[in-house]
């Protein structure tokens, strides 16, 4: 049903730390690996080994450069998957009821058996979190690894999304963002977690932790600076006399 629930019991989602993400793309690969074999249709590739490869991914890592008014530019790696929005436009636009938001945990899913592949939900998502699979003709999106997080066949340590489990930098956190006392909610409060494109009114559940301010490179250089600084700006003594004498010769610097 494409009517959004007014509230959900829990708001399960991800918190992504832009400070610690190293841009290794391990989450991209583990997401594709898990999800191509589990929930729904596989994530197909087209021309995978040819000249123009492309494929369906539920999670992609961008890299941005931020140039402040003063100081050095900073490189920020930026993983992006479905944000499981509370006011998800992708759900309400769906004509078939294939897209829905679960009341129990707020996860936004696609029932692929009902999806006609019209693509309108992908049009309505500001974040590019939905991709139509070219081989299957149905809409694919992040499932928050719904087939892992409650899966009692997996060891408890693995009952988190594949991307979270894989991240070597610990940049992805999973939990209930509706519970103010959960670890993820505390992390968001502590680090000033933010929404992407808040002006779109989607109320994303996933939050992004902004990069921490960097140490000043100038301060560090200062330790050696006294030893490296030029002793005098104007050459004196013999070198000074030579400099002036050479300038006086025809063709010398004026």
């Amino acid at each position: 049903m494409t009517e959004l629930p007014t509230t959900t019991d829990r708001k399960m989602g991800l918190v992504i730390d832009l400070d610690t993400c190293v841009g290794c793309h391990a989450c991209v690969i583990s997401c594709k690996g898990w999800n191509t074999e589990n929930y729904g249709a596989p994530l197909s590739d087209q021309d995978a080994y040819g000249g123009d490869p492309s494929g369906t991914f539920l999670n992609r890592v961008h890299s941005f450069e931020v140039q402040p008014d003063e100081g050095h530019a900073q490189l920020i790696h930026f993983p992006k998957s479905c944000l499981h929005c509370e006011d998800a436009p992708c759900v309400t636009v769906c004509p078939t009821g294939a897209s829905y938001k679960r009341v129990e945990d707020g996860i936004v899913l696609v029932n692929e058996d009902n999806c006609i592949g019209c693509g309108l939900c992908a049009w309505s998502c500001p974040y590019g979190a939905r991709e139509l699979d070219l081989a299957e003709g149905v809409m694919k999106k992040c499932t928050l690894c719904v087939d892992r997080i409650y899966n009692e066949n997996l060891p408890e340590v693995d009952r988190v999304p594949s991307c979270v489990r894989t991240c070597p930098a610990g940049a992805r956190h999973f939990g209930d963002l509706g519970d103010p006392n959960s670890d993820v909610s505390k992390l968001v409060a502590e680090r000033g977690g933010m929404d992407l494109m808040p002006e779109m009114g989607t109320k994303p559940v996933n939050k992004y932790l902004p990069p921490r301010p960097k140490d000043q490179i100038e301060d560090q250089i200062d330790v050696l600076a006294p030893l490296l600084a030029p002793v005098t700006e104007e050459a004196g003594g013999f070198m000074g006399w030579l400099d002036k004498a050479l300038d006086k010769l025809p063709g010398g610097a004026s």
């Binding site: 494409t2 636009v93 004509p95 078939t96 009902n114």
Partner: peptide, 9 residues
Amino acid sequence: RAFTQWKTS
């Protein structure tokens, strides 16, 4: 199936 969700879509 596209005829079913007229309430929102």
